[in-house]
Structures are given as C-alpha cells and as structure tokens.
Design a protein around this nucleic acid. Structure first.
Length: 270
DNA sequence: TAGGCCATCTGGTCCT
DNA sequence: AGGACCAGATGGCCTA
C-alpha cells in the first residue's frame, strides 16, 4: 500500500462499490454513450426502475432468481442482477489486488511514495525468482553447514532442529552471503550480478523509481539460460533485476509443484 | 501519440 | 442454485 505512487493514488485500484455504482448511474443518466462493451447498457429507463428498488429488494431478487428464468425478467431486474454480479466481481478483484499488494510489501524491492509500484506481472515474476533464490540459498546453506561440521565431533551433520536457525555465535565461514563470490551458481537472482549490496540500500530506492521495462515481459522463455545465471539482463541503467520471462528458469522440483498446488489449473482444459 | 497497465463489465464454465 | 473463477472486450490514465 505504502508503495503506491501518485499514479496509484490518483486512480485507486479498487474504488468503493458505491462510487462505481454511482458512476454507472451518472454515465447512464447523463447519456453516456461511449463504446462500452456491447452488453453494457445502462439505459435511463432501466435505472429508473432500478432506483425504485431498495438494497434489500435487490438482494432478495437476485438471490431468488434462477439463471434459466432470467430471460423472462424485465430489463430492470436483469440490470439489478448484473449490478450484483459486477459488485461481486469487483470485490473479488479488490481482494486479489490486496493480496498483490501484500506480496509487493514482502518483496525485496524498494517501497515508498516516490517509487513506482511494481506491475502485477512484474510482482509475480519477481516473487517467483525470489522464492527460487531463497530455496537455492537454503540448499546452499545446508550444504555448506554440512561441509563445515560434517567431520567435527560435535556436529556430526546439519541438524537445525537442535541448533535452531543458525544462531551460532559469530559468522559462519562459509555463509552463503559471503560465499556468493565464490559460488556464482547461486548468485542472488534479485541482486545485480556485480554487487551483493543490500536491497534496502539507498541506491535501490532511486533505481526503482524507474520502471523496469524493456519490452521483454512478453518475450518467449526460449533463450533462458541456466538458473545459475538467473537474470539474463537488468533494467537498462537501473541495475534492477529483470522480471521478464526470459529470466525465468524453473528447476524441475519447482515446476512439478504447480501441478500439485493448482489442481484447478491442471484439470482445467479450457 | 503509441504502448503499457489497469479497472470494470460481461458471459461462460466450474465448483460446492 | 449460487458463487467463484476465468478470459475477452473496452476505455481511462500515464509515460516515453
């Protein structure tokens, strides 16, 4: 939310339902004749009948009408049902946007009023890369810890359950944060290849004020390299990670996950 | 001014 | 049956 820019504030992602309803009324009452969708017709006569209904009337009407009977309804009644459905859809999209904002907030990406909000597609792609990066970092950490303590008497192996989440005093010599330089294969997908500076560094905020765009968001992923290379390219002059599809290389174990967590997608033959 | 992004409407389909 | 989900269409806003 706080990452919203003036653009966002000037056009709220989810205006109040009442506002939408009123704007719809205004459009119709004032003879709005824009080339709206073919079925989007709010004629004044419809609205006249619509305004005669209370909210409770509308609700009960919509709830008690079967789809098959709708062809028998008057224009006003159909309009009422349509408004109810539209309202639900707006709410659904609003909830989706709220979730999207929540995702943006936890992304290692500069937030603030002066930073343009990530687009939806960029948010999703960046989130995906972030998850992949975290997974790789975790695996690398496990491997390094095993290497370090594997031959020692105290730590026969990696057992985070016993030691907590890496709370040993002092830096672990082989900590991934320090090992990236010697392990380019796990370099941070969200950081510029030449720098491991924190994403919260002042420079990032300035960088993210420029929307990362290069027309590759819709490019095919054919030319994507190995995961180790992560982002193939970065925002021109921005140093920002590229969220484009070319930079997306799903590891096998991640790809298979989608079929498990999204049964609707797999079963959907549309 | 073109293109990107977005909100909204709408009808169809699937799920509970 | 009703709601959720989805995708296409449309128009508005913003930026390069």
């Amino acid at each position: 939310m706080d990452s919203d820019t003036s653009r966002v504030s000037s056009r709220p992602s989810s205006p109040e339902v009442d506002d939408i309803f009123l704007s719809t009324l205004k459009k119709s009452v004032h003879g709005f004749s824009g080339a709206v969708s073919s079925t989007q017709s709010d004629s004044p006569s419809d609205l006249a009948s619509l305004r005669g209904l209370s909210a409770a009337d509308e609700e009960s009407l919509a709830l008690h009408l079967a789809k098959k009977d709708r062809k028998l309804l008057s224009e006003g009644e159909l309009q009422t049902i349509r408004l109810k459905i539209n309202s639900r859809e707006r709410k659904r999209m609003h909830d989706l946007n709220v979730a999207m904002d929540g995702l943006r907030e936890v992304m290692p990406y500069a937030h603030g009023p002066s930073v343009r909000k990530l687009s939806k597609i960029a948010t999703l792609l960046l989130a995906r890369n972030y998850i992949l990066m975290l997974s790789n970092s975790l695996e690398e950490m496990k491997r390094l810890v095993s290497e370090i303590y594997g031959s020692s008497g105290h730590h026969g192996g990696f057992h985070p359950s016993a030691c907590g989440t890496m709370t040993h005093a002092g830096p672990v010599p082989g900590h991934p944060a320090a090992s990236h330089a010697t392990h380019p294969a796990v370099h941070h997908p969200l950081l510029p290849p030449v720098s491991t500076a924190s994403l919260s560094a002042p420079g990032i905020a300035a960088v993210t004020s420029v929307r990362p765009h290069h027309g590759l968001l819709k490019a095919p992923a054919a030319g994507a390299g190995p995961l180790g290379s992560s982002f193939q390219h970065w925002g021109v002059g921005t140093g920002m990670p590229c969220p484009c599809s070319m930079c997306q290389v799903p590891p096998p174990h991640v790809s298979s996950m989608s079929t498990v967590t999204m049964p609707r997608l797999t079963s959907d033959s549309k």
